[in-house]
């Protein structure tokens, strides 16, 4: 599903690489946690997968798409196949909760009736029924992040990437978000989660990939995590 082969990324030409020859293979329906301290390169890895940034060297293949062969006009199509959740939520500030979620469907030309049926179902999955007409600023951090998850999964992507989705949340809300990710994974979506929250990693008991200074230093199934 996700294949990285000796992928490196330097933000500046000839500068110190933020990712250094990362190789990683993620199977369909897998739940993988990427851990590492701040500045380790987790966000950089996610940005390469969404093609927000381009790798300096190495090969990236996601869902059969080779990123080196990707043309600019195909990038939106790639992104529509991947659900993304960001640490800072990235909700559209001038749209209601319903519209934030329906945006992901409207932009691909889905009919109004289908949208009316789909969005409430997804908002129910993330426990936000009743908040449809609220604006993002009226919601708590945890609620906003659940909107972002609803938006990411509403198109039923095969892959969900969540970059420190709990980083700005208190423990209770953080755990709500994690439980939703687990639920989505049970429905068959491949989940790639980055975090540096030790408790979450230890509770989840999933495959853990540890990054340090841009390099993978360990990759273990059913792992715990110690800083």
């Amino acid at each position: 599903m996700i294949l990285l082969d000796r992928v490196s990324k330097s933000y500046s030409r000839g500068g110190k690489p933020s990712l250094d020859r990362i190789s990683l293979h993620v199977e369909p329906k897998e739940f993988v946690i990427v851990v590492g301290q701040s500045g380790a390169g987790k966000t950089t890895l996610m940005r390469l997968l969404t093609r927000e940034e381009r790798q300096t060297s190495g090969k990236i293949i996601v869902g059969g798409i080779d990123y080196d062969k990707l043309k600019d006009r195909e990038i939106p199509l790639l992104r529509r196949k991947i659900g993304v959740v960001f640490q800072d939520f990235k909700l559209l500030p001038n749209k209601t909760i319903f519209e934030n979620v329906s945006f992901a469907l409207e932009m691909v030309g889905m009919g109004n009736q289908e949208i009316k049926n789909t969005v409430p179902r997804v908002l129910e999955i993330v426990n936000l029924t009743g908040k449809e007409d609220n604006m993002p600023y009226e919601l708590s951090g945890g609620e906003r992040q659940r909107v972002a998850i609803a938006r990411a999964i509403v198109r039923q992507p095969k892959i969900l990437i969540a970059d420190e989705p709990t980083g700005n949340l208190d423990p209770k809300h953080a755990w709500d978000v994690i439980k939703i990710l687990e639920k989505i994974n049970r429905y068959g979506t491949t989940v790639l989660l980055t975090t540096h929250n030790q408790e979450i990693v230890n509770k989840l008991k999933r495959r853990v990939v540890t990054i340090k200074d841009g390099k993978i230093v360990s990759d273990r199934a059913n792992a715990g995590y110690k800083i």
Partner: peptide, 15 residues
């Protein structure tokens, strides 16, 4: 930022 977000969600240029 709005444009950037929509871009990341895979919306087309025209949209």
């Amino acid at each position: 930022d709005e444009i950037q977000i929509m871009r990341l969600l895979g919306a087309g240029r025209g949209y």
